[in-house]
Design a protein around this nucleic acid. Structure first.
Lengths: 124, 124
DNA sequence: CGGCATCCTTCGCGATACTG
DNA sequence: CAGTATCGCGAAGGATGCCG
């Protein structure tokens, strides 16, 4: 075993720094305060800008705008423009790639619930 | 199905806000820049403060100190003190609870690697 | 050696106003 | 309606120095 290899067996054959970089990437992409909220708000149907802002309580237009740009850059959503309509209609819809997050989201939800339970019991 | 239920099927029977809270908890606990690095640095053996600081490149004493306190509060590590030695020896070791993170870590590593691959291919 | 105190910087985010 | 521009706060983190 190389010095760099992690003894935790999360990444068989993966160096620690490679693992840490991958984790940092994930945190960078979905670690923002609103990122996953926007994705979830789009999970059942495409939505328009102001619709999203009403749906996601507390988000400002500036932040929502930035989130949507980043999400599009990362391939999570598509921006659909209907230029024929007047005024122009812009809709955001989830791309297939957003489903690749399901495992990450699931494990985070699971761990978060367990952790809260654990904390509660320690309080008793 | 209640209005609150998520149409993404990550949390069967779980409301969106419950999911989002659980995710926020997880991000709060392990979302710090250094948290997982410290845990991984401790994964093969207990280590002392200055040893950790050398091992984790770039971390300051202040930040490491805070991380270790938080990690202990959250039950991830134990602080072992050998008071008989002079000067006193302090060691940090992983607690069993830190292994509960393995699924989260694994999925984040996996997704991060895939995402980087995807980005690379788009560059071509 | 194992930290804590202090000061400073950076970055994410919030609030508000404004525009085509 | 769908955003952009501007301003600025607050918290996380970095740099440095000191102490038992």
């Amino acid at each position: 075993m190389k010095k760099e290899d992690c003894t935790t067996n999360e990444g068989p054959g993966l160096s620690c720094s490679a693992m840490l970089n991958a984790i940092a990437d994930t945190q960078y992409v979905i670690g923002g305060k609103w990122t996953l909220r926007v994705i979830i708000a789009l999970s059942d149907q495409p939505r328009r800008f102001n619709e999203l802002q009403k749906l996601i309580e507390g988000i400002s237009a500036r932040v929502l705008s930035n989130e949507l740009k980043d999400l599009e850059l990362n391939g999570f959503i598509h921006r659909k423009i209907d230029a024929k309509a007047k005024p122009v209609i812009v809709e955001y819809e989830l791309a297939a790639y957003s489903h690749s997050l399901s495992e990450v989201v699931k494990s985070m939800v699971h761990w978060g619930l367990n952790h809260r339970e654990k904390i509660k019991q320690r309080m008793v």
